[in-house]
Nucleic acid binder design. Sequence first.
DNA 1: CTAGGGTTAG
Length: 586
Amino acid sequence: MARASSSISVVLRRQSPNTHIRYLTTETKDCDFTQVAQQICKIIRTKPRWENTLSSQYPSLNFSDPQFSREVLKHQNNVLLSLRFFLWLSSHNGFSPDPISCNAIFNALVEAKACSAAKSFLESTSFSPEPASLESYARCLCEGGWVEEAVDVFNRLKGAGVCPSISTWNAALSGCLKVGRTDNVWKLYQEMIEYGVVADVETVRCLIQAFCDDNDVSKGYGLLRQVLGDGIVPGNAAFNKLISGFCKEKEYTKVSELLHTMITMNCVPDNFTYQEVINWLCKKGKVSEGFRIFNDLKERGYAPDIVMYTTMIHGLCTMGWLGGARKLWFEMFGKGFRPNQYTYNTMIHGFCKSGDFEQARILYKEMCDKGYKETTVSYNTMMTGLCLHGRTDEAYKLFKEMPQKDIVRDVITYNTLIRGFCKEGKIVESLNLFREFHTLGLQPSAQSYTPLIAVLCQVGRVEEAKSLWNDMKNIGLQPISSTHDDIINGLCDQGDVTEGMDWFVAMLTDKLKPEQRTFSRLLSCLLHRDRLDDSLLVLDFMFTLGYVLEKGICYSLVNQLCSKNTHFVETCLGDILEGSDISTCL
DNA sequence: CTAGGGTTAG
């Protein structure tokens, strides 16, 4: 969860013009508070261990006088030093914190967005800030991502019978969205309703976004239509979120509807709108469609920005259309855009994918020369490309370089290399990496296990594969469909067709679609074992899922059926031949 | 400041 860091040097706002307070000490000597306060501030700033000596330096000063403490706080312009001084005072000389000083420090901390300091200050002093301060505090917490704490503050305000302003509510909702806590959005919105606060456009924007983030895009759309009916027009933000959400769901009719509504409502679709459309079209495999829109936009006078170019170049690269990608790259230059971290990595990825490591390295060097730092992503990109083209030794070299350059290896780094090694049958190397990864305490993903289980099954080490499977399940990871296929095929290969059938049934129960190879392997094993009933069961599912029967298996199936010579056989034969690709051969 | 987008596993 994102947390804002506390600011270190901060200006404490002066509350009032500097007033000279004169004070009579026990030595009956006049003491200028302002002067002493300034001296003390300097000591606090410059002497790291002032706590040990301050009292003895001013033996006659009454540190517990609130007027004095206020004066020091007024002169101290570093809020964290103020806080330290205040805490020191609290534990000395019987000083009992006065509300004015407390409020001053608390407000300064809030203003400095030092949420965690403000929070511990509240906890340690147990004073009650003014409602206005609390409200600012709640905003500060939200902006810093401390939404749980913000909800507590809202409850506190509620306890005091104070209703936060609409902009504070909105800030809270927006803060919850930023850290992905839609649950808190709904909680807060519920309270808003209980207070009788009337939602405004910004509230609607937050709610629509919350629906979209919850993958309830249709509900978000419902809300939009409702408010449009009431004459409220949310800004592009709400529209763009909905459009992006529907693109993700491939609901292109709704997308068009929304684009039209936007235009009707004078919310002109912008680069953000179309960027989302193009991005999701590309991600859902409709790159040509995305490219068409991209070109249309240019013709209609839209000026794609660097992000849009990057998105489009990426789309073209994933399709292997490197020529088109390069053309856009140069077009982008012509428009005055210079590639950034994303653009470089995208293009490097394109070259790597197509196996042009020479170009990839030229671009990589250019990226570094332009001052962009090498990152985990840039390394992962190169390693992915190398592994894809069977150059795992080179990828491994890069892997070893990373710590020397202080570049963090992440789960993708390891998964990439594990996959690469597995593909080349280097099981020992893969398992070593896998263990190293575990030792480092990194959180594996399903993709960490997938290639290992596959290769272990291929070489007949199904027990080890199953043990990895159990590990996965135990840490709450869901194996992908093909991992089921791998295990079934492994079991069949070692003659455990009965257990293979169990796994097959489990797959169907989980509504997963076994691959063609799994059906073929199961069928030939079952036929080999003379288990005709199970064969027919498997066959039935196979046809239901739209697969065709391979020639070889079809022949042995027909042979077996004919050798049984029962009445039932004849009814089966027709179906089987219909579903096979040999009917023309007979 | 005002909402916010793009890169790496397949």
